[in-house]
Computed example of a mutant assay.
Amino acid sequence: MSNANLPSHPIILGSSSKFRAQILTHHNIPFTVLVSNINEKAVGGSRATADASELVLAVARAKADALLVKIQREEDGGEEKLVVTCDQVVAWEGGVREKPVSEEECISYLKSYTKAPAETHSAVIVTNTKTGKRVEGVDVARQHFHPIPDNIISQLIAKGDVMYCCGGFMIDDPLLFPYLAQREGDEDSIIGMPIKLLLRLLNEAAS
């Protein structure tokens, strides 16, 4: 990807996710990281009844609000920048899944995807620190799976990365490659940073 597709404004990634950072780096998008420490569980109401897209937008908005306060306090006006905040959940059979809270829950998640696909809802919000303009969107993608053997699930959990991923899986883990079936949507979106949506929002926020 050419940087000609990007606005000239400095970009702040409001996420500690190494996976999102890797995607931006892969696409030659320069950025710095600044993280807001919010209680995500306190945003968006009950996960049992939440609409997945509305939930991720609510959390990403809360992250943006917290970061803007932090930036304004530290920089007192400063240079015009674009702040990117994100959130993602997996919708499955009418429920919402975030990061697994235990190994047992992760095992349950991975086994369940043979029955129905994992549907990722990835919110991206871009806020212009100078103008206050904020634009947002949600990208939805689906990943189908073949049955994942127990020994592979054990190896994935032992490696640990899946415990930090909503829905308890990483499609770019080589251990999982043989068990990935049909995909509806882009790989970047399922990982948590839909690049096409991000680029559109960056340019909208800069204009």
Results as ranks from 00 to 15, higher is better:
residue 185 G to L: 12
residue 172 D to N: 09
residue 126 V to M: 01
residue 169 F to A: 04
residue 85 T to L: 02
residue 71 I to Y: 04
residue 113 Y to R: 07
residue 92 W to P: 02
residue 203 N to H: 07
residue 151 N to L: 05
residue 180 L to N: 02
residue 44 G to W: 06
residue 76 D to N: 12
residue 50 A to S: 13
residue 96 V to E: 11
residue 57 L to G: 02
residue 44 G to Y: 08
residue 171 I to A: 00
residue 9 H to I: 02
residue 62 A to Y: 06
residue 191 I to Q: 06
residue 18 K to I: 14
residue 41 K to I: 13
residue 53 S to T: 06
residue 161 D to W: 06
residue 110 L to A: 06
residue 189 S to C: 14
residue 102 S to H: 07
residue 75 E to Y: 00
residue 150 D to N: 12
residue 157 I to N: 01
residue 141 A to C: 12
residue 153 I to G: 07
residue 142 R to M: 13
residue 24 L to K: 11
residue 94 G to P: 03
residue 40 E to W: 07
residue 31 F to S: 09
residue 72 Q to Y: 09
residue 114 T to C: 01
residue 98 E to S: 10
residue 145 F to S: 10
residue 53 S to P: 03
residue 141 A to R: 03
residue 126 V to K: 03
residue 21 A to C: 02
residue 163 M to H: 09
residue 42 A to N: 03
residue 93 E to I: 10
residue 146 H to G: 00
residue 153 I to Q: 10
residue 179 Y to Q: 08
residue 95 G to T: 13
residue 196 K to Y: 13
residue 171 I to H: 07
residue 190 I to N: 08
residue 61 R to K: 11
residue 61 R to P: 08
residue 99 K to G: 04
residue 179 Y to T: 10
residue 47 R to M: 12
residue 178 P to G: 07
residue 41 K to Q: 11
residue 182 Q to S: 12
residue 58 A to R: 05
residue 10 P to C: 12
residue 102 S to K: 10
residue 156 L to V: 07
residue 96 V to Y: 13
residue 72 Q to G: 14
residue 87 D to R: 13
residue 177 F to C: 09
residue 25 T to R: 04
residue 55 L to M: 02
residue 26 H to P: 00
residue 76 D to I: 02
residue 152 I to V: 15
residue 167 G to M: 08
residue 144 H to T: 04
residue 15 S to Y: 08
residue 25 T to W: 03
residue 133 K to V: 15
residue 111 K to G: 04
residue 1 M to N: 11
residue 74 E to W: 03
residue 149 P to W: 06
residue 6 L to D: 09
residue 102 S to A: 06
residue 206 A to D: 14
residue 39 N to I: 15
residue 197 L to C: 05
residue 140 V to S: 00
residue 154 S to G: 12
residue 190 I to E: 05
residue 205 A to T: 02
residue 173 D to A: 13
residue 38 I to G: 11
residue 98 E to G: 12
residue 126 V to R: 00
residue 108 S to N: 07
residue 70 K to M: 15
residue 32 T to H: 05
residue 99 K to R: 15
residue 207 S to V: 02
residue 75 E to H: 11
residue 170 M to L: 15
residue 16 S to H: 04
residue 203 N to C: 14
residue 87 D to I: 13
residue 76 D to P: 00
residue 131 T to P: 03
residue 58 A to C: 08
residue 16 S to F: 06
residue 2 S to Q: 14
residue 127 T to V: 15
residue 7 P to F: 04
residue 188 D to G: 10
residue 6 L to P: 08
residue 189 S to R: 03
residue 63 K to E: 01
residue 200 R to A: 01
residue 98 E to V: 12
residue 140 V to G: 02
residue 37 N to F: 02
residue 2 S to A: 14
residue 115 K to D: 09
residue 132 G to D: 09
residue 36 S to A: 14
residue 19 F to R: 13
residue 129 T to F: 05
residue 204 E to Q: 15
residue 200 R to I: 03
residue 110 L to T: 09
residue 8 S to F: 11
residue 166 C to D: 01
residue 45 G to P: 04
residue 93 E to W: 09
residue 192 G to R: 14
residue 80 E to V: 03
residue 192 G to D: 15
residue 141 A to G: 11
residue 154 S to W: 02
residue 134 R to I: 06
